[in-house]
């Protein structure tokens, strides 16, 4: 029975950890939205900033991927 409770705790923890992905979603959406509004104001400058856009998205996304990793670790590795 104790093992089952530990199992349950793992799954609950994994579910909680995936909430971090919401933060990554907010961050990526923020970056993309701000890029778009800036690009609509000054379309000629937009292509030069594509690299910065992707780097920003990558940085924001990495933190979400961390929480996904935590979830996977809880599910499969702990």
């Amino acid at each position: 029975m104790e093992g089952d409770i530990a199992e349950m705790g793992k799954f609950i923890g994994a579910g909680l950890a995936t909430m971090g992905l919401g933060g990554a979603g907010i961050g990526v959406g923020h970056i993309a939205g701000n890029f778009l509004s800036g690009a609509l104001r000054n379309p000629s400058a937009a292509p030069g900033q594509m690299a910065n856009l992707f780097v920003g998205i990558a940085f924001a996304e990495a933190l979400g991927i961390f929480s996904f990793l935590i979830a996977l670790l809880l599910m499969f590795a702990v």
């Binding site: 996304e61 991927i65 996904f68 990793l69």
Partner: peptide
């Protein structure tokens, strides 16, 4: 860490 997890994690997910 982030450099590797980003790539592997995205693909795996």
């Amino acid at each position: 860490l982030s450099h590797s997890i980003r790539l592997g994690g995205n693909l795996m997910a």
